[in-house]
Design a protein around this nucleic acid. Structure first.
Length: 597
RNA sequence: GGCCCCGUAGUUCAAUGGAUAGAAUAGAAGUUUCCUAAACUUUUGAUAUGGGUUCGAUUCCCGUCGGGGCUACCA
């Protein structure tokens, strides 16, 4: 429609005003719903060419377009806006074509370049929390959206399994754990390890207090506590491959992975390949050595290796410690290069990481460039905002962290309560019901987190449970369930009915019907936009809009009971296709559709 | 201190420089002898502030005020 009208307006301008439109002078937008029409030409930019008032220019264009262009049936001019209406045949023709196209809106698989999407990337010393949920849902959804527009996608995560943080948990477990295991305690593995991370912090704080009393400054004390020294010693032992340390490390990380696996399963996300920092940090060290030899980096007297980014307006940045051990950024250098080596056809990679690390990635990409890495420009930081609580940022020390498992479970409970209130699902076996509650609960959560522009910070209030009414996941699910229920009902009396084949040639579309069709028409463009901006929120909003229009249509149209065969066939087809588009759109958000609820 | 991001109905979110700033929720008023009311209909209510650019600014530029983040030989 845009292309059709765009070309026509260009032609009109050259014939009416004898000028060629420059890029940017042609402005087309969807007509606002207060006005009559489907597509609007913004006339202001054209007045300079036409040398007429905005109104007169609009009238002239409108007259030309309705007379000369097929499918443009009517026009009206309001101020400087030319509203064009497409003909009924245009909408019916579009719907008939879309109906038969099972992959309507989607590009064919592997028709676009191979991309890698990194997300999740947890530390292995504590359980996943609300921030990880936004990260995982976003990364998973962006991957699905990229696949939908034809990319081959490899989903990965880098597991931060190495470093002082895990050593802290290890020391605390060794000192205070009495051999406790997930089996003996009944705790999920990641929760158990997280518990000892907190234990470490407690002991460390207590020891600091004592040292400060003896006259040390806070900074000194933080370095000097016995337990901190022990953790640092453990890190040294780990890098030296000390057998007992590696054994403990392997065991505790194993517990964490078991815990994560169950959380990921509950979230409905997965990965094609895992990278472990404990492997990639070695590559990073090698790359840093190479860079030093090539003169990209420099070494300080104490032996530490740095990069000078002051020319770029940034600071100097350490890349390797004086004792030669790797830092966070060291392994990131190695990982980036390793990934392109693992997948030679990789066009680019996307890092789904919070916006507090924007500086880190800016520096990382600059380092890669200085190293002469040819794919340095093919790395993109998909930066997303934090999830804030009413009292501000989540802080594990203050116990204000919202745990991922707890939250998902709570959402399922709310789903159960809502369902019970309305007396639904009573005949269903318990296992099936619980599965439904999980599907509905996670839908509410995913939609809540994905409907917001990823770049923006957002607020979550744990005291107010996430809504199930209005612009929410369950509400969209409900509409889908409605489309399925109607089709089931019709099939009872008419087995073998195929909405794709049913004849509705003679049916004239009502306003509500054509609004649903017009919204459906937008789907391919919405999907492309979401893919180019890495923004699942576009898809969430679209799904809700479509569901809302369908519900309005449903409200005052008979479907199964409609006596006119052509009208009934059309409405059944519309119901079928709306269901398909909603299901596919929500699938791209990682939200699955129940058959009933 | 320096750098970056954000201030939109009571609240949570929308709005490629375009029309009368949209939704949801909360508040008010309605709709179930008819395919599931997690729905539908009506209604109240907002661009922090002062300038500038523009035919036109929530959007772009500058200042002020407010909020957040980064600025480790932590990850």
């Amino acid at each position: 429609m845009h292309a059709l009208v765009g070309d026509a307006v260009r032609k009109a301008c050259s014939e009416l005003f004898s000028v060629e439109l420059a890029e940017g002078q042609l402005q087309l937008q969807k007509t606002r719903k207060e006005f009559e029409g489907d597509i609007t030409v913004v006339v202001f930019p054209l007045t300079k060419l036409s040398k007429l008032s905005p109104e007169a220019t609009g009238e002239a264009l409108g007259k030309f377009l309705t007379e000369q262009v097929a499918h443009v049936s009517k026009f009206n001019v309001v101020k400087g806006f030319l509203n064009l209406s497409m003909s009924a045949e245009f909408w019916k023709g579009f719907f008939a074509a879309a109906l038969k196209q099972d992959d309507f809106g989607f590009a064919s698989p592997n028709s676009a370049p191979h991309v890698m999407v990194e997300y999740s990337s947890p530390n292995t010393n504590k359980p996943l929390h609300l921030g990880h949920l936004r990260n995982n849902f976003l990364g998973y959804s962006v991957s699905e959206i990229l696949k939908a527009v034809g990319h081959r996608v490899t989903k990965v995560q880098i597991i931060n399994d190495r470093g002082i943080h895990i050593c802290k948990s290890m020391v605390a477990w060794k000192n205070y754990g009495n051999g406790e295991t997930p089996e003996s305690s009944g705790l999920k593995g990641d929760k158990l390890v997280g518990k000892y991370y907190v234990e470490f912090d407690k002991a460390h704080k207590a020891q600091m207090k004592a040292l400060i009393k003896q006259g040390m400054t806070e900074e000194q004390a933080a370095q000097q506590t016995a337990i901190m020294q022990e953790a640092q010693e453990m890190l040294r032992l780990w890098e030296a491959r000390d057998e007992a340390t590696i054994e403990l490390w392997t065991k505790m990380n194993g517990w964490v992975y078991d815990g994560f696996a169950s959380t990921y399963k509950s979230m409905g996300v997965d990965f094609d390949k895992l990278y472990y920092e404990s492997n990639t940090y070695i590559n990073g060290k090698e790359e840093v050595e190479k860079g030093l030899a090539a003169g990209a980096f420099f070494q300080k007297e104490d032996g530490s290796i740095w990069i000078d980014l002051t020319d770029e307006g940034l600071d100097q940045k350490a890349l390797l410690r004086k004792d030669g051990t790797a830092m966070y950024i060291t392994q990131d250098i190695g990982t980036a290069i390793l990934r392109f080596r693992d997948f030679p056809d990789l066009a680019y990679q996307i890092y789904t990481v919070g916006n507090e690390q924007e500086y880190h990635f800016k520096v990382l990409f600059m380092i890669l460039k200085k190293l002469g890495f040819e794919k340095a420009d093919q790395c993109y930081h998909l930066s997303y905002g934090m999830v804030e609580l009413p009292e501000g940022k989540m802080k594990s020390r203050e116990g204000t962290v919202v745990d991922a498992d707890d939250l998902m479970e709570e959402m399922a409970t709310v789903a159960q309560e809502v369902s019970a209130e309305q007396g639904k699902l009573e005949g269903l076996p318990e296992a099936e019901r619980n599965q439904l509650f999980h599907i509905i609960g996670t839908a509410a959560l995913k939609y809540f987190l994905l409907r917001v522009d990823p770049k923006k910070n957002m607020l979550f209030d744990p005291k107010e449970s996430i809504d199930f009414n209005g612009n929410t996941g369950p509400s969209v699910q409900y509409t889908y369930v409605r489309t399925q229920a109607i089709q089931r009902r019709y099939a009872e009396a008419h087995p073998g009915f195929n909405p794709k084949e049913a004849n509705s040639e003679g049916h004239t579309l009502s306003t509500a019907e054509s609004e649903v069709v017009a919204k459906m028409y937008e789907w391919p463009a919405v999907l492309r936009m979401a893919a180019t901006t890495y923004n699942p929120a576009d898809i969430a909003h679209y799904s809700y809009d479509l569901a809302k229009l369908y519900n309005a249509f449903y409200q005052d149209h008979q479907i199964v009971k409609e006596t006119d065969e052509q009208a009934r066939n059309f409405r059944l087809a519309l119901t079928y296709k709306t269901g398909v588009v909603i299901r596919e759109a929500m699938r791209l958000l990682g939200i699955s559709m129940p058959d009933r609820m």
